[in-house]
Write a protein that binds this DNA or RNA. Structure first.
Length: 502
RNA sequence: GGCCCAUUCGUCUAGUCGGCCUAGGACGCCAGGUUUUCAUCCUGGAAAUCGGGGGUUCGAAUCCCCCAUGGGUCACCA
């Protein structure tokens, strides 16, 4: 039975790398008819950020990533919030101590820092482990009586993992195959903190075991601690799950992994939905608020580090689940490309049910105090959507359907205007009144007749007219716009435009 | 610095066990065509000597070794 989990820490908003990890876990669970679990890893109370948990839930929901067990919905392996499981960790750390696989250590953080500095000044790196643990203050080096005394007086202490003697540890990764590490380079990591909470390394493994997780699919940043984790499983005599470490998502320019600063700097989101820092009140933009459809966002994100093995790029959630295989996940990091991200949304916008697009367009318009009927919105959206990537861009691109242009683009006037332009406009004004009904077909007929009669260049003529109607030399078929805004408004705009060409 | 991971067009990538790769697709870019304009759309183009160097082989992007570069990680954070 495949059981996978997504286990974020509620320390802030979920970065798109985290969303992708959740997504791949979800793909894998669904593809293999398994279960997907959401567990909250909040063992570090000092880093807890209020609202982060809700943010995670909302982000996953927006993306259409559904889980089968976890916080809020429960399940038979709960509780799913680590802060609700402290008793369990205590129980298991004691097992490790009894087995001699863990020990008490009495240095304070300050003392440790001091020691690190000393090593550093000698050009060495301090490592609490096999080579020096007998020279440090712990239950391995101190006489039993001394240890007992320290423990009885509640002297602050942590519990460390006792890395077994130096030996080659071979671990397996589904994406990278075998990785060999000598345990001599692994620290005696803290498993239990002096505040009575476990660290990630303990809590994560205990929970994965207790929750019967079959595959641990997580970010590449965890790869260095994989040998330690395997050693802990072995110390417990537990079966080791399968591991898959996902490649990083890199920043579009420069070096390193994507960070929240990149978004601000380069003008795109690195979060699925927007987030306001509760302390600084700073607002981080999100893909949702930037106007992305969640389907486009998810599609784009899934292809950053994975592909179905063929040329398909536009894929639904179902198609991706069907095609997903950990073997096709890449080994190297993928640079995030905000321009291609826009393209994905463009494609989804074109495919979307026009009624939905129109309703969204209508809502956007009402935000700028333009109220239209759904029919009008459908008409304009159908005409204009191929020109934009986002519905909200429709507002700026199609504003001339609803409002008289504020100014007429001088550049366009310079390019298309002629000495005759003003006269053409005056002539058209006379013709236009007689066009009945005032529809696209009749308008075209009248304008083309005029064109033929006067023998003028179509480009200059139509653009002169267009600049008056639209404000600049672009947009869909002119007579369609004129029909939409109606005869009177057309006349008004032309009258207003004449002076620009004189 | 130690350890680990990675390395195909600017970017995302295809490339089953070495031959069909004079390296394919997509985004972006450029040109032409369609369009009364702009955009869309269509067609075409430039774009990777497969990080470099050695091998193995009749033959290597694909196997082996070395090097370089990039990244990750070295907390009582996850």
């Amino acid at each position: 039975m495949v059981r996978v989990r997504f286990a974020p820490s509620p320390t802030g908003p979920l970065h798109i790398g985290g969303v992708r990890t959740a997504l791949y876990n979800y793909f894998f669970a669904r593809k293999n008819k398994g279960k997907f679990i959401l567990r909250i890893e909040d063992t570090d109370q000092s880093r807890y950020v209020s609202g982060a948990e809700e943010y995670i839930l909302e982000s996953l929901a927006w993306c259409g990533i559904q889980f089968d067990e976890g916080i809020n919905i429960g399940g038979e392996y709960g509780p799913y919030r680590q802060s609700d499981r402290t008793g369990i960790y205590r129980e298991y750390i004691n097992i490790l101590i009894q087995k001699g696989a863990a020990y008490y250590a009495f240095e304070t953080p300050d003392e440790l820092n001091q020691i690190r500095k000393e090593y550093e000044s000698r050009g060495e790196t301090f490592q609490y482990g096999i080579n020096n643990r007998m020279n440090l203050k712990n239950s391995l080096s101190l006489p039993a009586s001394e240890v007992k005394k320290l423990l009885d007086t509640s002297h602050p202490h942590v519990i460390r993992f006792k890395v077994p003697e130096a030996k080659e540890v071979t671990v397996n990764d589904l994406i990278r195959d075998e990785i060999k590490v000598n345990s001599i380079i692994i620290d005696d990591k803290v498993l239990f903190k002096s505040d009575g909470m476990p660290t990630y390394h303990l809590a994560n493994i205990v929970d994965d075991h207790l929750m019967k997780i079959s595959h641990v699919i997580r970010g590449e940043e965890w790869l260095p601690s994989l040998p330690l984790h395997v050693l802990i499983y072995q110390a417990f005599d537990w079966e080791v799950p399968e591991f898959a470490h996902l490649p990083l998502i890199l920043r579009p320019d420069g070096k390193g992994k994507l960070s929240k600063r990149d978004g601000d700097r380069l003008g795109f989101s690195v979060y699925p939905i927007s987030w306001q820092d509760p302390k600084t009140k700073e607002i981080y933009r999100g893909f949702r608020e930037d106007g992305y459809y969640s389907e486009a966002f998810v599609n784009m994100l899934a292809l950053l580090g994975w592909n179905p093995g063929d040329d398909r790029e536009i894929m639904s959630m179902e198609e991706m689940i069907e095609a997903f295989d950990l073997k096709d996940v890449h080994k190297s990091g993928a640079r995030f490309d905000p321009i291609k991200a826009r393209w994905f949304n463009h494609v989804y916008l074109q495919k979307r049910d026009i009624k939905l697009v129109a309703q969204e367009f209508k809502d956007e318009l009402s935000k700028v105090n333009i109220n239209v009927t759904l029919e009008e919105a459908v008409f304009v959206a159908e005409l204009m959507r191929e020109r934009v990537d986002f519905v909200k861009d429709l507002v700026t691109e199609a504003i001339f359907f609803f409002k008289t242009p504020e100014t007429l683009d001088p550049k366009a006037i310079k390019k298309w205007g002629t000495d005759n332009s003003a006269q053409w406009l005056k002539d058209i004004l006379l013709i236009i009144n007689d066009i009945e009904p005032f529809d696209s077909e009749k308008i075209d007929e009248a304008l083309n007749n005029y064109l033929k009669e006067k023998n003028v260049k179509a480009g200059n003529f139509f653009n002169t007219l267009r600049i008056c109607i639209v404000g600049t030399s672009k947009g869909p078929h002119l007579s369609t716009i004129m029909q939409f805004i109606g005869k009177q408004e057309t006349i008004n705009r032309i009258e207003r435009g004449i002076s620009y060409f004189e």
